[in-house]
């Protein structure tokens, strides 16, 4: 039976009613990282734990990817039906800024400081016909 599966494990809590980004927190210096990592990029400690990073933030910067990237980009799109997509850094409550695709893809829909909300979206079908999903953010104002 074909199902929905995360494109990569450990990036977000899912499935569930309110998916959250997952990251790591250093038990020694308290700094967060996304994705989670076993050692801390701030202090080098190997004492880290996986924590929920939340599902909302504000847009710190953004751009729009207007052409279809070459490999390693891998979706079901073709050059004919490629749809430009937004990319941004979203500042979360814990302070780190997470890079993400954005639902919005036009300059007049995006601005620094815009409140953003996490959503889980399809990426492509895998070889077994399962739908792979990943995270992205979208404007919380438009919802």
């Amino acid at each position: 039976m074909q199902t929905q599966q995360p494109l990569h494990p450990g990036l977000f809590s899912w499935p569930g009613s309110s998916p959250q980004l997952l990251g790591s927190r250093c038990k020694d210096c308290g700094e967060h990282a996304f994705p989670s990592q076993h050692s801390c990029r701030a202090c080098g400690s190997e004492r880290t734990e996986v924590v929920e990073l939340g599902n909302a933030g504000t847009l710190w910067t953004w751009t729009i990817q207007s052409f279809m990237p070459k490999a390693p980009y891998l979706t079901d799109e073709t050059p004919e039906n490629f749809r430009p997509y937004g990319v941004g850094y979203v500042e979360l409550a814990c302070g780190i800024k997470v890079e993400s695709r954005l639902h919005e893809n036009s300059a007049n829909a995006l601005r620094i400081g815009l409140p953003m909300k996490l959503e889980i979206v399809p990426v492509r079908l895998d070889n077994d016909g399962n739908q792979l999903v990943t995270f992205q953010f979208r404007s919380a104002e438009a919802l």
């Binding site: 494109l7 990569h8 990036l11 990237p69 390693p72 980009y73 891998l74 979706t75 695709r101 990943t134």
Partner: peptide
């Protein structure tokens, strides 16, 4: 980095 980063179009 892991493959998802490039596959979802962030590696530019």
């Amino acid at each position: 980095l892991d493959d998802w980063y490039g596959e979802t179009g962030l590696m530019l």
